[in-house]
Design a protein around this nucleic acid. Structure first.
Length: 176
DNA sequence: TAGGCCATCTGGTCCT
DNA sequence: AGGACCAGATGGCCTA
């Protein structure tokens, strides 16, 4: 807000140079104050837009979280974990599809003796052996406090693989 | 208390 | 000119 002084319209010797300088100074201060408030209001508007933008970004991130399987269910992944997990999850799903195409129709030998990888056993190796350069399905590379345990890593692809290969999916399978 | 995560502010840059 | 996007800075909250 420009502090508009009460004495802005007094009339004393309109032609005097000193008075003219004083008026110029006041006018300049007024325009500077105006400019300042203009800049300020633009900044406030920009801040508001930026806040909104980030809220939308977070909403999208929440949506992404909601379709990612986590263990336990109420685990909330951080932003970076969500992005990494989504990346790896997509990779794992497409890999699952690829493997499913290979095993349909299921070869008799496979159904009989050799069981598909289970979450607890060699699913991790299934993941890593599927592609040497494959990313881990783990959401993060962080320490033990990370919500993405090794259990989570094998969880989704192993179960979906079971489904695709005509075997009963394990209870609580993440894929609908 | 240090470190991680997050929200917000801010100034710069690019685009329409 | 104004809006969108981006990256850096800052401060608050939480946890080990």
């Amino acid at each position: 807000m420009p502090a508009e002084g009460p004495g802005s319209g007094e009339g004393a010797e309109p032609g005097a140079p000193r008075e003219r300088r004083r008026r110029r100074g006041r006018a300049r201060a007024r325009t500077e104050a105006l400019l300042h408030t203009l800049k300020r209001s633009r900044r406030v508007k920009a801040n508001d837009r930026e806040r909104n933008r980030m809220h939308h970004l977070n909403a999208a991130l929440d949506e992404l979280r909601s379709v990612l399987p986590t263990f336990p269910d109420d685990t909330k992944l951080t932003k970076i974990e969500t992005l990494r997990f989504a990346y790896n999850y997509i990779w794992a799903l497409s890999e699952t599809l690829r493997l499913a195409e290979q095993c349909l129709p299921p070869p008799p030998a496979f159904r009989g003796s050799a069981a598909p990888p289970s979450p607890g056993s060699d699913a991790g190796s299934w993941l890593s052996s599927a592609s040497p350069s494959a990313p881990s399905l783990c959401a993060s590379t962080s320490g033990p406090s990370s919500p993405a345990t090794s259990e989570d890593c094998a969880y989704a692809p192993a179960d979906s693989l079971r489904g695709f290969c005509g075997l009963p999916a394990a209870p609580g399978a993440p894929l609908r």
